[in-house]
């Protein structure tokens, strides 16, 4: 009887673990009606539990799938924005700063008066004016006074040009702001 109790434990554990019974236990079960009855009832119970599980299942609400997918999608978008380091405020500031720098650079590079003045005092210009007389005879180079007059005349078109550059930049910025920045900007 005490052995039967042990055998029953082994039978139950073997069934739980989906393992075949050891040969010694099997031979005991064959000869012992009590253990055989226990094994049969355990197998029946297992089969009923598995069979009834499908019937016992609950059907998820119809919108659950959509809700899960929407939540995942929202989280995915938020994650992508964080990974790319996208911050609408920072982007706007960065674009503005870039435009200011480009404008400043344009003013610095295309200022004719300053270029003319630099040319007056640069050693290269002096070298050209003093040493290369033969070149002057072939190509009529403008003298300092002429360059000054030209630069004064060029100031007006340069201002217009700069205004046009700033206008273009502003339009570009507005285009970016309308198309790529969120609504609150």
């Amino acid at each position: 009887m005490i052995f039967c109790w042990i055998y029953k434990q082994v039978i139950a554990h073997s069934l739980d673990a989906n393992r075949a019974l050891p040969e010694r236990i099997q031979s005991h079960v064959r000869s012992c009606p009590e253990c055989r009855g226990f094994q049969e009832s355990e197998i029946r119970l297992t089969e009923r539990l598995i069979g009834h599980a499908a019937r016992h299942s609950e059907t998820p609400p119809p919108f659950l799938h959509g809700k899960i997918v929407a939540a995942l999608d929202q989280d995915s978008r938020r994650g992508e924005a964080e990974r790319s380091g996208f911050r609408p405020g920072w982007s706007a500031a960065l674009v503005s700063l870039s435009l200011v720098l480009i404008s400043a650079l344009a003013v610095h590079l295309f200022q004719p008066a300053r270029i003319a003045s630099e040319l007056d005092h640069s050693p290269e210009t002096q070298a050209v004016s003093t040493t290369d007389e033969s070149l002057r005879s072939v190509v009529k180079l403008p003298d300092v006074e002429m360059l000054r007059v030209w630069s004064q005349n060029l100031d007006q078109p340069l201002e217009t040009e700069l205004q046009s550059v700033v206008h273009d930049a502003r339009q570009t910025f507005q285009f970016f702001a309308q198309n790529f920045l969120p609504d609150q900007f």
Binding site: S57, E58, P60, P61, L64, K67, I68, L72
Partner: peptide, 26 residues
């Protein structure tokens, strides 16, 4: 989703909680 919902339904005994927790699980 069905398996997780079922498990949670049995665990919670409540379809509303099971639904919320299923979503949170995924």
């Amino acid at each position: 989703e069905k398996r997780i919902f079922n498990f949670l339904y049995h665990f919670t005994g409540n379809s509303h909680d099971a639904e919320d927790i299923t979503q949170e699980t995924f």
